[in-house]
Design a protein around this nucleic acid. Structure first.
Lengths: 248, 248
DNA sequence: AATGTCGGTTCAAATAGTGAACCGACTTGG
DNA sequence: CCAAGTCGGTTCACTATTTGAACCGACATT
């Protein structure tokens, strides 16, 4: 792996739940030597991508990232463009709809529009969704290049509920089905009682950049409802894709 | 320079005004070989810190940055904590107040609270302020380590108006004055007709992370007004610093 | 048709990265 | 209260990664 790749993978060790990490811990998790990690951290902190809290001596993500992200967001306003479409989809279906962006092997929830109903699915912004076991993930895989899919299938597929697909073969079938009809469907694969319909959002290069998903209590869903949600989700995802690529 | 440093300096070539850049251009501006730049870009894009627009083949900042920035902002909510204080300072002084964060040798405007008055100073979010010639910059330098100040003084100081301090000696005096009274004062150093009072905001390590500044039309300012604005600005900056370090 | 630029590739030479061993300072636990 | 383990950080001989001049084909300009 390139030195740059190692440095960036250090950044990726920081999460919402663990915003600061010590040197030895970083080295262990990154699978690198402590001396190497420290040198990389120094290089990163010179550019403010990493900061060190002087009291605890622990490291955290730096201000430079906020700055770079603002520059990007000004010209690739994923959330800003998608939010109104997500909102309309939520109103149309009467269900919770969430938007996620792919990053580092998983989907990160960026925006949520909650259902107005009392019995609804709640999703948190910042939540990380696995590619298998969620409708969003399957929709994403169905839109990905074959090599990305097979790379993902190499790794073990942890179970989140008793319904989670953990067999690669089952997943391949689900991906094929999602690819053929444009949207994915998943029931209780990640959380019990939750049914989801997912659709991929494509970037300018035709590669998927994220997904949206309609999440409902399983009790409210039958095949007819799922079908109409699927069509609406696909339409919404296409609309966002078009806006992203400047076609609308 | 380390390889990582080179890679990050590539990221820093992208700005609000120039969000995508071609390969040769990047190499030229970074002072690196084209082959080197390309390899670095590939490493960065593997982690989604860089994307390539497939039509134009130009490069731009990637989605991974937005994700990392969100993780950081969740735990270092500079703007979120500062905004209410900035607003109160604006109401108290009746003038435009803006908040900036240091990054890559300059101050980036993150948040602005405009004066309610008809004759007011307008500042844009995203605007980049030089360290010399703005009250914010002088306040920042006054709170910085001596070595950082001397490093800044090495470089030439461009003039923005006929009032801009371009002599290092003058700047040193202004910094000393600001350090002694806690706030800086600058008239028309960056834009004609604008008077500003700046104060530094310190991070957990005691180093300045950014500044706030009260900006008024010169016509409304005399020494008494400047003094009271200065005191209010210092108080507000200290409040934000305390919130940042979790002391309030 | 000629010239210049673009993005991208190659490979021998050179430079930058690496990691085991070692600090001193703290914490933990018997 | 000492021994063992951890922490962040440093050193330096060894080595693997990075580097860049030269070279593509494609496109634009003249």
């Amino acid at each position: 792996m390139s030195t740059v790749g190692k440095a960036v993978s250090l950044l990726e060790l920081f999460t919402l739940h663990e915003p600061d990490i010590g040197l030895s811990d970083l080295a262990r998790r990154a699978g690198l030597d402590k001396a190497t990690v420290r040198r990389l951290l120094m290089a990163l902190s010179e550019h403010r991508l990493i900061e060190q809290e002087p009291r605890s001596r622990r490291y955290r993500l730096g201000a430079g990232l906020s700055r770079l992200a603002r520059i990007r967001d000004a010209h690739f306003p994923f959330v800003r463009l998608a939010a109104p479409v997500i909102r309309e989809l939520s109103l149309e279906t009467g269900e919770t709809v969430h938007l996620s962006e792919f990053s580092a092997g998983a989907l990160l929830t960026l925006h949520v529009e909650l259902s107005a109903k009392a019995n609804r699915v709640n999703v948190d912004v910042g939540q990380v969704l696995p590619l298998h076991g969620t409708a969003s993930g399957i929709a994403f895989l169905a839109a990905s290049r074959l090599e990305a899919v097979s790379a993902y299938l190499e790794k073990p597929l942890p179970a989140f509920t008793s319904f989670t697909m953990t067999q690669p073969d089952d997943l391949v079938k689900a991906i094929a089905l999602a690819a053929s009809r444009g949207y994915s469907r998943s029931a209780q694969g990640y959380e019990e009682g939750v049914h989801s319909i997912g659709a991929a959002i494509l970037g300018a290069d035709g590669q998927p950049v994220g997904t949206l998903a309609v999440a409902s209590p399983v009790s409210r869903i039958d095949d007819a409802v799922a079908g109409s949600q699927g069509e609406a989700a696909v339409k919404a995802a296409r609309m966002i894709s078009a806006r992203l690529t400047g076609e609308a």
